[in-house]
Design a protein around this nucleic acid. Structure first.
Length: 240
DNA sequence: GCGACAG
DNA sequence: ATCTTGTCGC
């Protein structure tokens, strides 16, 4: 039963959603991580074609081993459409439902989407971070806003992402000569730490393990290959 | 008005 | 996001 706070309704119009973002953006904190990282979580959602059924999941991995220690998978419905800049209002409700069932609260959460690399500096990673009051990192596969120079070809190189003259994130090469990912601060973390953590959780694929594993698991859930629930669910047997 | 636009 | 086989390159 991980903690989270309700700061607003999800049953809002796009215009109201924008107002909420402009209000909550002031709650985002940029600060160094406190203490060592013991657990890192990955969160993602999956959909069927033109369906409003959402399959959401939060996976908790031990750091730096990246072995799964907890998971929460839920199936719900959504009606808010996908609108660039308002992704959080479509995916966060389901992610929060999965989050509240987690037993092991992670020290940092990696989310498939932008953090402050957003028009109003309040992408889904920042929004989710503020709601669960945990450090979060935004790791997106494509660009939403900003300009950047192509980073050098080898893994580990990055170039800053700028928007309106300010640095909002980086284009980070996680694999040699492979399309970079876009990393930005979500909440309660620094950009440097975010970059380091992403690189430390990359295991041979472009996408770092937390979000990659979360993506694989919610897709398996959508295809009916696995059932919703928690790692500590009686129906699923014991932990180890 | 035109083009861009996380998942 | 999702629909999908083969194909090019390290």
């Amino acid at each position: 039963m991980a903690f989270y706070r309700t700061l607003h309704s999800w049953d809002v119009s796009p215009d109201e959603a924008i107002k909420i973002q402009n209000q909550l953006r002031n709650l985002v904190k940029v600060e160094k991580l406190v203490g060592e990282i013991r657990y890192i979580a990955g969160a993602d959602v999956s959909f069927d074609k033109g369906s409003n059924v959402v399959y959401a999941g939060v996976l908790v991995l031990k750091f730096p081993e990246l072995e799964e220690v907890d998971r929460s998978l839920v199936v719900t419905e959504v009606n808010f459409p996908y609108i660039p800049g308002l992704l959080s209002f479509r995916e966060s409700p389901a992610l929060i439902k999965a989050w509240e069932k987690i037993k092991i609260a992670p020290d940092v959460v990696m989310i498939d989407g932008q953090g402050i690399a957003h028009p109003r500096r309040f992408g889904i990673a920042s929004h989710f971070g503020v709601l669960v009051d945990k450090p979060t990192i935004g790791c997106a596969k494509s660009l939403l806003v900003g300009v950047y120079e192509e980073p050098k070809g080898e893994a580990g190189n990055f170039s800053y992402l700028y928007d309106s003259g300010e640095i909002i994130g980086v284009a980070l090469r996680t694999r040699d000569n492979v399309q970079p990912v876009f990393v930005s601060i979500g909440h309660k973390i620094t950009l440097d730490e975010s970059i380091q953590i992403v690189m430390k959780t990359v295991r041979g694929y472009r996408i770092p393990e937390p979000t990659r594993q979360a993506h694989l698991i919610v897709n398996a859930l959508r295809r009916g290959e696995i059932k919703p629930g928690t790692r500590t669910n009686p129906e699923q047997g014991s932990l180890f």
